[in-house]
């Protein structure tokens, strides 16, 4: 094993890939209309709530001017009552230490309240990562073998 550090690193990467907990560090923001109000729920993508995050609500009528400012509670939740006469489209930004997300909230009746952002399962994440790592490692092997062939000819 000591004779080939690239193989050792590769093995370490594979073991790491297998054993590492699948957690991310992105932010996940979902919304739900309950009566007249819009409920926002923000969490890191490991499920930890984004508590005390700053929430800024922008109206579709004036998308650069903050309409409502607030802070999420201990559960990463926040609620506001939008003015339907102002706009049926709202953007909500949740931010904490430069991390966060922006979601578009539509109050239109025909809009489907399917606001769940795509969230991959652990298996999907593992498969995607394996594909990417395989691409990187394959590139490494390709160039390594190319060099071996070159060395053999010279």
């Amino acid at each position: 094993m000591y004779s080939n550090p690239v193989k050792s690193l590769l093995l370490a990467a594979v073991l790491f890939l297998i054993t590492a907990p699948v957690f991310g560090h992105g932010a996940r923001v979902t919304w739900e209309i309950l009566g007249d109000s819009v409920h926002i729920s923000a969490s890191f993508d490991d499920g930890q709530p984004m508590d005390s995050a700053q929430v800024t609500v922008f109206s579709g009528a004036a998308p650069t001017v903050p309409y409502i400012l607030g802070i999420t509670d201990d559960y990463g939740e926040f609620a506001f009552v939008p003015d339907r006469e102002e706009s049926l489209n709202w953007d909500v930004q949740v931010r904490k230490a430069g991390h966060g997300n922006i979601v578009h909230v539509s109050l239109a009746e025909d809009s489907i309240a399917d606001n769940e952002q795509d969230r991959f399962t652990t298996l999907q994440l593992v498969l995607m990562s394996v594909c990417v790592v395989w691409g990187f490692v394959g590139t490494a092997f390709f160039f390594a073998s190319k060099r071996k062939r070159y060395d053999a000819h010279t």
Binding site: F16, L17, A20, V133, F136, V137, T139, F143, A144
Partner: peptide, 16 residues
Amino acid sequence: VSRASVMAAAFFVVSW
């Protein structure tokens, strides 16, 4: 390129 590929893979995975 070989080294860069392997190290990029490691960098990609550790963000997990």
